[in-house]
Design a binder for these strands. Structure first.
Lengths: 370, 370
DNA sequence: CCATCATATGGTAGCGCTAACACAAAGCGT
DNA sequence: ACGCTTTGTGTTAGCGCTACCATATGATGG
């Protein structure tokens, strides 16, 4: 008898093993009176579905509160898309924004993000190799990695998909998302000039990053267009970090006549400038205006809050993820992988660190002080 | 003839659609001369595999450079695990570390992370509800969310799995990872006392966060144990941000006699203290020592770099992800979901913002200054 | 010596979705 | 009228893995 039962069970229906009771595509299909395939098509926005049918399906989806199963999707859809994200010593606030944008989009697109941090560009390259070999299908390259020629060469060699977040090379091996650094710096400079400043110091960013040059360029152009002179002494080299900002600010503030405003190429250096100014008992913004760039967390966490340029970092990385997915798709369908480039809008955020220069020309104040 | 061909094709093998040529579990099974099932068991570390067989399989895995397909795994394994991560205005540097830890572990465990930011605890609750309804199976709660009773109540109501990153309540509704804030503050205070300081100011953290009280407690205990007095004037309330740190520092530095050291409950407030000190032409650390807590990015980006307590934030969030996965698993297998709690080790990081007090008692220096 | 159990392994049937095809119906040129 | 394409939908067969059972083998116990 026991064996009879066993035999009977053999042909019988096994216990099904649905993970949860979440609705599946089949449930939706039933509710919409069509095939699962049609539902799939609607979900994926294919255009070969009659409008009528589509609405029926959407209604069913809504009623059942259906969400596609990500795992099944990427399993059936072929390769799982994994995107590598390498960081080389970014400022934390930049990183946070960056990750949020990437994560959000990755969630939406059902892409897996592989995040790695490294300590130098040289370390980054073998890591990229390893990630590529382990099946990473695309990379997002934040600065300064996207500014390093050898990294870009590696991208070309691997023939992988990469998006530079920041100005990339236009050699067609990779896409890029960036803001118009030149124009943004130009606008900020005009804003400062508009306040009445004439002697404006500029702290240059890390020379290894392309954006630094662009920002410098925008500054110089705006000054020139306003008929203002930019003596070399007003251009001081920094490296995008607080430390370098302090050194640069000290040099600028020791100048005679002292500049009435300082435009730093990023917020970290601007924050350092504010600190140095305070140490010298200068009031910001009344004795000296300070402007930054990036609108990272820091810009709002110090006092006075920084007037700065806001980069839509989150939107930029989200775009980068989406662009990689698109590129991968077109690569698989044998079209030549298209390289996309995007230029995002920026904003000039006016806060409390800038003001019109003091009425008494600062020249009066500073006698010989050597 | 054409129709003949069509009919022939009908029964024929379709084009297979392997996404990539990555090895599958079947390939490994073939190489190890066993069934895919056995390979699966080895991968998942089940113990019902003979040691001999296991090694054979591992060898094959290595040779083929096989990695399991995540999508297939979670599809077959039942429910996909999705973990919600809600942020309420964290400092960017904290967020960055936090995310890195969570992402890393989520990658390893093949868990999907759903990150959301919100602007207040009140906003957080409806968001949690919505996420829960959309199938989020667990939450990681960073401070200050994990300190809010109504949020914890919601966790209990939803009967979902949650891990507080920070000291949680011990009511058994949720797990937690934290460091011993009391002991860490105690250690730091002893360190400062050991330097020779006797008059030490303390900036308290946001009163809504449990950790604040613990840190304060540790400070007071250490002072008491050293036989040092803590007059009320040396305890100033802050809110964990730069702004509040500035205000607090101004009050402390205006004291007569001025404290020779200030211990701020986090790095942001310590950084603010350094800035205020500098503005008052005080040298850090020679005129005044400043110590922070957390070892966020900021601690190393200002000058002098802060002596602070390092929390292993990354490890903590990684642990949180792993704990949620474990809890979910035990919940599914009908065991009562176990609530895990972990206390992680911390480090006292000595940098440049602390030193022995100046030989001349500061009292001498500060006359009446009103 | 056979029932009973533990241990190690295999077979099968899905998990939920989509690629690739099949096909019916409609449109269009000749 | 016939082929030919186009459009919208259905059918089938997986994607790579694991849950669930079955089974082979040895160990135990009465």
């Amino acid at each position: 008898m026991a064996s009879d039962r066993t035999k009977a069970l053999k042909g019988a229906v096994r216990t099904p093993r649905r993970g949860s009771e979440a609705p599946t595509i089949a449930d939706v299909a039933r509710a919409a009176a069509c095939s699962p395939m049609t539902v799939s098509r609607v979900i994926n926005g294919e255009d070969s579905v009659r409008e009528e049918t589509r609405e029926l399906v959407l209604e069913a989806i809504n009623k059942l509160n259906y969400t596609p199963n990500r795992a099944a999707r990427s399993l059936a859809g072929g390769a799982q898309v994994r995107i590598g994200l390498l960081f080389d010593n970014p400022s934390a606030s930049y990183l946070a924004e960056f990750l949020m944008g990437a994560l959000e989009e990755a969630g939406r697109r059902d892409v897996h993000l592989e995040v790695q941090s490294c300590d130098s560009t040289d370390e980054a390259k073998p890591m990229m190799r390893k990630m590529f070999e382990s099946g990473i299908s695309g990379f997002i390259l934040p600065p300064p990695l996207c500014d390093d020629q050898s990294v870009l060469d590696l991208v070309a060699e691997l023939d992988t998909v990469a998006i530079a977040v920041g100005p990339g090379k236009a050699d067609g091996t990779h896409g890029s998302v960036t803001i118009d650094d030149f124009q943004a710096a130009y606008d900020m400079t005009r804003h400062i000039i508009g306040l009445g400043h004439k002697r404006i110091g500029f702290i240059i960013g890390n020379p290894e990053q392309v954006a630094s040059g662009r920002r410098l360029g925008g500054f110089c152009q705006a000054m020139q267009d306003a008929g203002l002179d930019v003596p070399d002494e007003l251009l001081v080299q920094g490296r995008f970090n607080y430390r370098s900002g302090m050194a640069a600010a000290e040099r600028l503030l020791a100048l005679d006549p002292r500049p009435t405003a300082i435009f730093a190429s990023n917020d970290d250096m601007a924050a350092a400038t504010v600190a140095v100014a305070h140490r010298q008992h200068l009031d910001v913004p009344n004795d000296i205006s300070v402007c930054g760039f990036d609108d990272t967390d820091l810009a709002r966490s110090i006092w006075p809050e920084l007037t700065t340029i806001r980069q839509p970092i989150r939107a930029m990385t989200a775009w980068a993820v989406a662009a990689i997915v698109r590129a991968l798709r077109s690569k698989r369908s044998a079209e030549l992988p298209k390289i996309e480039r995007a230029v995002m809008p920026y904003d000039l955020i006016r806060r409390e660190s800038d003001a019109a220069p003091a009425l008494s020309a600062p020249t009066a104040k500073s006698g010989l002080q050597t």
